[in-house]
């Protein structure tokens, strides 16, 4: 009995916080827009019964998504931005994690603290402050002009570059932490054993360190990729007109066009795209847990 309740709790949690909202969004995505409150039809009523209600639902909105190339371009562009940003986060995050794992024992808590520190201020404020750094009169341009590296201010803000900077900056800790935890667990004598058997430092890194931190790399990549794909705040604050991301489209459909059914359809498709990496991520976590045992 106690066991049953214990098992039930997480399922109820999932039901309340994931399944129910998903069913609501799914149901709206199958409806039609209407000038009403809420702005879609049909509404369920007890008089007409469940069948009359269900018969009015259709996949029209999903069909609509395929007719306008804006949507699939936005999906593709989001994928591309998320993948590129993940790649850069890995490129920057791995050396940082490596440095942390190699740092003297007594420094590590401090370094860890520095990585987590940005989470203590609001995400929104941190993204806003990048505007102050990247704009034409921003700190970055001022410093570069002052140092004589450039003659005219660089245009970074409101371009895709700014979006990459924003995403990499925001999600870097999610890349660093799992890689650090993998590297921290790595037994230093393995590297010595590799060198003893004839590896140079670099070979030992590629043959031992990288494969043994693979799980950390995979976890980090998913933790950056998944939120980056649906990211809305960073492209709308730092991006420009060229920046096409599905999160922004979603927002516009909901709030500018007040087209809840199409917006819901966009959200459902986004979720389906995300399900693949999320399932892969779960698999990786599970395999890692098994290997650790």
């Amino acid at each position: 009995m106690r066991r049953a309740i214990l098992i039930l709790v997480p399922y109820l949690w999932l039901l309340a916080l994931f399944l129910v909202p998903f069913i609501i969004v799914g149901r709206i995505s199958l409806s039609d827009t209407a000038l009403a409150r809420p702005p879609y039809l049909p509404q369920f009523s007890w008089d007409e019964g469940i069948w009359a209600f269900l018969s009015q639902l259709d996949f029209e909105n999903f069909w609509f998504l395929t007719t306008d190339d804006l949507y699939w371009k936005a999906y593709l562009s989001s994928l591309q931005i998320a993948i590129t940003a993940t790649f850069f986060a890995l490129l920057i995050g791995y050396p940082i994690a490596y440095g942390m794992a190699r740092a003297p024992e007594e420094w590590r808590p401090t370094l860890m603290m520095l990585v987590i520190l940005p989470f203590w201020t609001s995400f929104l404020i941190r993204v806003y402050s990048w505007i102050g750094i990247l704009s034409q009169e921003g700190y970055l341009n001022q410093i570069l002009l002052w140092a004589g590296i450039i003659d005219a201010p660089l245009i970074i803000l409101n371009t895709n570059t700014a979006v990459y900077i924003g995403i990499v900056y925001t999600y870097l800790p999610f890349m660093i932490l799992p890689i650090y935890s993998a590297l921290d667990r790595l037994d230093g004598s393995l590297i010595e054993a590799a060198e003893d058997l004839g590896c140079s430092r670099l070979q030992a890194f590629w043959l031992i360190t990288v494969p043994l931190s693979k799980n950390g790399i995979i976890a980090g990549c998913f933790l950056v990729f998944i939120p980056a794909l649906g990211e809305f705040v960073i492209p709308s604050l730092l991006g420009g007109s060229e920046t096409l991301m599905i999160g922004k489209i979603l927002w516009e459909e909901f709030f500018n066009n007040r087209d809840w059914p199409v917006a819901s359809a966009v959200a459902v498709v986004l979720l389906l795209i995300l399900v693949v990496p999320i399932v892969l991520f779960q698999r990786n976590q599970q395999r890692q847990a098994e290997e650790d045992r």
Binding site: D187, S189, L190, E192, A193, A194, I208
Partner: peptide
């Protein structure tokens, strides 16, 4: 070549 106390197998 060294055989490590902890074996250090990959």
């Amino acid at each position: 070549n060294m055989m490590f106390q902890s074996y250090a197998l990959f």
